[in-house]
Design a protein around this nucleic acid. Sequence first.
DNA 1: CTTTATGCATAGCAACGCTAGGTAATCTCA
DNA 2: TGAGATTACCTAGCGTTGCTATGCATAAAG
Lengths: 114, 114
Amino acid sequence: MEGEMLKGHLDMIVLAALSAGPAHGYAVIEEIKRRSAGAFELPEGTIYPALHRLEHAGLLASRWVTTDSGRRRRVYALTRRGQRALAEQRAIWEQFSDAVGGLLKGSRPWKNPA
Amino acid sequence: MEGEMLKGHLDMIVLAALSAGPAHGYAVIEEIKRRSAGAFELPEGTIYPALHRLEHAGLLASRWVTTDSGRRRRVYALTRRGQRALAEQRAIWEQFSDAVGGLLKGSRPWKNPA
DNA sequence: CTTTATGCATAGCAACGCTAGGTAATCTCA
DNA sequence: TGAGATTACCTAGCGTTGCTATGCATAAAG
């Protein structure tokens, strides 16, 4: 699928992916892919700028971590503000989703034979 | 609400608004507003270009109509291709919506990367 | 050793809804 | 009758934002 459909929803998606616990960028990409059952395979050029933006906005905090094997990773975690933002955006998503649902309802081609 | 959230969903929304029957641009705006319970108040600068685009793509057909009171209106109707496109986009919306749902819902035992 | 996967970063592009501006006829109501 | 609101259409250009393309570097797999 994909188009420009997730414009305006990306922040929420990234925040949601981090809601289970801290993760580094690459892991965020995989978590999004996993939780969306493969529907969202977001490129690095989408995620890294998003993470930077969200950190700059105070919704995420990051620290550098070095693994046992010597890999450097930047691990992000939701801040309290980030958690609040996620809750807000989730509520907005519900409204948006309901509104679209309302539009699609009544346009059903295979009308439900009550 | 509003942001850039409906990027990539506008065509479906317009097609859905016309699925009940032909309508002119201004009426499409009101139909969208009505069916979305006021959530979507789309400006003319959004709708008219969208209608032109959809007609150019062969998903809509238009004709000029003059009302009894002498008003000129451009009335749009779904073509067969438009109906098919709506069905497709509805299916894609379901996928998109489910994927976002999975993201907002799914939390799983956290596997520490570091 | 060569390939694949991991991991981070960013300049510039492209898509697309929206702002802001214009034109014009009809309706409402004092 | 006149003013303002509403209806009704159109479009150039803007701004946001996700994505492409590219670069760098290390670790695991073959």
